[in-house]
Simulated assay, not measured.
Amino acid sequence: MAVAGELAAMDAALTIRVAHIDDLPAIIAVLAADDVGGHGDTTDAGARPDYERAFAAIAADPGQTLFVACLGAEVVGTFQLTIQPTLLARGGARALVEAVQVAPTARGRGIGAAMMRFAMDEARARGAVQLALASSKRRTDAHRFYERLGFVRSHEGFKLKLR
């Protein structure tokens, strides 16, 4: 999908598409560049099998889709969209967007907004009645970004490290 609007001034058109296994090194690099998340992502070759297993599991699950945003042939962003059936909202599906990341060299160019609008449209097209996300309390800039896109702070989140 080509994205216009705020990206019109860019040299290359932005495309957002389903990720392929060949995109994995670039996706890992984008995730590893995150200095706030603390997820332990790394470009170390020894970690590659972990990422390959996760990629295969995501690709095999019809409720999961991993996307990449590309400027020309370069992967500059990524996010994962989960469509989850639920009994809530009279059986309306819920969408969850995770791991929203833009490469540090591509930030401030509207790529994150384009990815999120794409995620919203994709979630609607897949029958979701709600799109949710979680964001670290330390990401105050990201919180303002999501609020500008219409997201509302509605829940208090909890997590428990299992390993």
Rank of each mutant, 00 (worst) to 15 (best):
G5V: 11
E6I: 11
M10D: 07
A12D: 09
L14T: 07
V18T: 09
D22C: 09
D23T: 09
I27L: 12
I28W: 04
A29D: 10
V30W: 00
A32D: 09
V36F: 14
H39W: 08
H39A: 15
T42G: 08
T43H: 05
D44Y: 10
A47T: 09
P49L: 15
A54V: 14
I58Q: 00
I58G: 02
T65R: 03
V68Y: 00
G77D: 02
F79T: 00
F79D: 00
T82F: 02
Q84V: 10
P85L: 06
L87Y: 13
L96A: 09
V97T: 06
V97G: 02
E98S: 09
E98H: 02
E98A: 06
A99W: 05
V100P: 00
V100D: 00
Q101T: 13
Q101V: 15
P104L: 14
I111V: 14
A113C: 08
M115I: 02
A119C: 04
M120A: 12
M120K: 10
A123D: 02
A123Y: 01
R124T: 13
K137S: 13
T140A: 07
T140H: 03
D141W: 03
A142M: 11
H143M: 08
R144K: 07
Y146A: 12
R148V: 07
L149T: 04
R153A: 15
R153E: 13
S154Y: 05
E156M: 13
G157D: 04
G157K: 08
K159Y: 12
L160C: 15
K161P: 11
R163F: 13
